[in-house]
Design a protein around this nucleic acid. Sequence first.
DNA 1: GTTTTTTATGAAATGCATTTCAACAACAAG
DNA 2: CTTGTTGTTGAAATGCATTTCATAAAAAAC
Lengths: 327, 327
Amino acid sequence: MEDVARIAKVSKPTVSRALSGSPLVNAETRERVLAVAREQGYALNRHAQNLRRERANAIAVVLDFGSHRQGAIGDPFIFELLAGISEALSVRDLDLLLSPSGLDTVEGFVDLYQSRGADGFIVLGQGTRDALLQKVARKNIPMVVWGAVSKTSSYCAVGSDNDLGGRLAGERFLAHGRRRWLFVGSCQHEEIRLRFEGLQAVAKANQGIKIDVLSIESMAFSAIHDQANAYLKACVDPPDAVFAFSDTAAMAVIGAFSKEGHLTPRDYSLVGYNDIPPAAHFTPAITTIAQQTGVAGALLVEKLMQTLDGSRPRPAILPTLLVARQT
Amino acid sequence: MEDVARIAKVSKPTVSRALSGSPLVNAETRERVLAVAREQGYALNRHAQNLRRERANAIAVVLDFGSHRQGAIGDPFIFELLAGISEALSVRDLDLLLSPSGLDTVEGFVDLYQSRGADGFIVLGQGTRDALLQKVARKNIPMVVWGAVSKTSSYCAVGSDNDLGGRLAGERFLAHGRRRWLFVGSCQHEEIRLRFEGLQAVAKANQGIKIDVLSIESMAFSAIHDQANAYLKACVDPPDAVFAFSDTAAMAVIGAFSKEGHLTPRDYSLVGYNDIPPAAHFTPAITTIAQQTGVAGALLVEKLMQTLDGSRPRPAILPTLLVARQT
DNA sequence: GTTTTTTATGAAATGCATTTCAACAACAAG
DNA sequence: CTTGTTGTTGAAATGCATTTCATAAAAAAC
């Protein structure tokens, strides 16, 4: 920077100001400095900058690659979220640190934050680690979470209206005169539990509806397939309606049930979740609950920015929508 | 750090050494320093460290979120690659910078690299910007690319054997006695062009095979669907074999063709690409070319590390495999 | 023509960890 | 008892940009 300063015949601080677009520098001078910087191929050192400014200029986005191993993350849905976040961060000139290691303990978060590795965190899906996240948030670490929204939470959550999603599914089943419902998903996951509760609420509000749960142990496609198949085989009175926690799971159910000759939409109604592209073109096309992934990323980033500004933004629940198809 | 040094009754350099696991510090002293650091809640500043060490300790992973808008990236395949890379980087204690902005020009790369925002780059899919990447590599910026491998390239590429993939598809078509082949995909993409060439080679080596190309303009699911539908409608002699550049595209083709009563596997053989989880459970299940995504991430990172060490690693071609299913 | 205000710029201090080089101690070798 | 090693440790220099505070110059106000 000193070299640039010398060549442009100004001082170091002036170069710094010119480069960071400070209004405290004369327009002509700025041009000159910028020109010199460009022709000298000068790029200012981000670490020196971040060191001085005492921030990272980066946000860590946490997603559970671990459970990806089991096929959970491949879901295009997460990808859309990620794309939205990436976009929103890049508008604000912030770097995106993807799933840094060590974030499976409170210390991991604290350390990354304190060492200025990241200015804040966006966690995608609380999964089964809500307790950890609560602890992290209580340490005053800026964090926003995509997932289930709860009033007692110590962090700001943004998520879909999972309860509504469940209700929508239930109402569809009612409309189709279905009475033996099956919920496929693990209620260990807060988000998924809420969907179940929505479904259950509709069931309870009506007479003569039986509701069963197939609690998924692994997110792997084949595991879900096998569990569903085994369930149906052991079933004396097969379900005439299935609500699956994801479209991928719904596909697994279709495959598993069809092997036993139990077909949708003939024998049972099916509702999936996320409205991933293949859902519309699967045979049969899958009715599903769509989330507003488009706005989700931008909203998460916005809430995090508010947190960084010291305010405590309100959680947000995005509406969900049932997309009716053949099943 | 000075505080820790004082409390532990040592000097700053000793603390530094203890924390970075240098062998130049006595075991007892190290323990003492570490204990003090822990109880004082001390975390060393990454930017100061990176500034001094003159590196970023981070790798930028570039993927084309832009084309995601059009449904390209949602492909679980990319996600698996990303998971593998994330894993391999975290083992080496390197941060993963996801798709930083500005990497659509050579200057963008140069600037990020010079400003020490990243020590190197992993580019996922060269797409249509091979020219850009060639220029970047010629600036001696450490970079590894997932995509088509070419001998004349100035960068190290790792990719699947796309040519083999094409041949495998062709041989399957032959085995099924198919003679009117259709390739669905854009030959603008080097990787995809290679697949087409593999297919074409098989066609040429045999008599009486007609081969046509449906050049995809957009990666969007619905766009592919519509193009395929329009193609079939305009077709006097419908294809009896289709090779699609991705499983997602294959699904789109199935939907588009079935609308016209043209069904697989009855009327045509179909081969997709990537072996994404739903491919196996689609109805009908999709025959596809599987890539070795598992090792790909680790390999990319390894090659990049070699590049960082100053060597010029050889490109690698991973074998592809045909997974036969109903179609 | 003098005083006040505004605008533009620079000197020096600051943020924090690492590395070089020198120094000291303890011990072995002669 | 001296010289040469080896093992530990510390003082000071270094990497680079930003910010505070002060100063100089130019413009405006009186």
